[in-house]
Design a protein around this nucleic acid. Structure first.
Lengths: 145, 145
DNA sequence: TATTGTTATACTCTATAACTATA
DNA sequence: TATAGTTATAGAGTATAACAATA
């Protein structure tokens, strides 16, 4: 018996469809600021963290070599900064430059507005219910892979 | 007053996070079959449709020129086929080749399995509730942009 | 020896612009 | 003229492999 079979194809479809809609909205928001979706994620991740290159790569699920170019470009645009780690002579820490922080804040607001057409489709009680259900679905240990 | 402000930042966060988790699972499923996420979407879209290049580009939100290369590669792999349209001498129709249909079916099953860790985190009643809430959120007219 | 980050290389994805063929 | 698709070109994103510096 394959216990990993889905019990509710309708839910899978709904999750996949809504995810594509949300990601498309975020991609278009990123594009409006001349960012890739990955760069937008970097800004969001570094909003309250300072990470080494390898740590950032881990968050994004990318190779370290990929981050080098990505951070290069963002650094040239004044969004990110690099600084050698005090603890480890090999490591480089990445964090938001002033311009990056400003943009990250702006994008946070705009993301809410971009998704408002979706969230506004629900009654207030349903919004809270949806938040709760997504929250329990994402609880530690429930992630795929 | 800015009426496009989000009324529930918690919901926005939950939607964004869950969407990234779902898309990451699908990307990794695509990668396991040597497909890009876009190619996986093409297989899903063409599963019950035959579209012109321009129509497919529209579904994906991509330029026609982008589709040319993408379909080229998938065609060489035996996943898609092209045929001139009977109605319009300029148009080319794209549809699943036998290999593409087989792969699309397999991927549909595997997507359910890949997301099972998420869906299984919910009680059956909650799964139905979540399906319903996502469904009403996606109702026509609610899409961003 | 192992790890951190970078560089070199290659391929895919994507867009813009120019082109051909058809409408 | 306008539309469908392709090609040429260019840039970003990504990975693998090889490398230098540090641990």
């Amino acid at each position: 018996m394959d216990t990993s079979e889905p019990e509710d194809p309708g839910l899978v479809d709904a999750l996949v469809q809504s995810s594509f809609v949300v990601i498309a909205a975020l991609s278009s928001l990123a594009a409006a600021h001349d960012l890739s979706l990955t760069q937008l994620r970097v800004l969001a991740i570094l909003r309250d963290r300072r990470l080494r290159m390898a740590g950032l790569a881990g968050y994004l699920g990318l190779e370290r070599s990929t981050l080098s170019g990505l951070v290069d470009r963002a650094e040239k645009r004044g969004l990110l900064e690099r600084a050698p780690s005090a603890d480890d002579g090999r490591a480089i820490e990445v964090f938001l430059a002033p311009g990056g922080r400003e943009l990250a804040d702006r994008i946070t607001v705009e993301a809410g507005a971009a998704l408002a057409p979706l969230t506004a489709a629900l009654a207030p009680g349903d919004r809270a219910r949806l938040t709760g259900l997504l929250g329990s679905m994402l609880e530690p240990g429930a992630r795929p892979r």
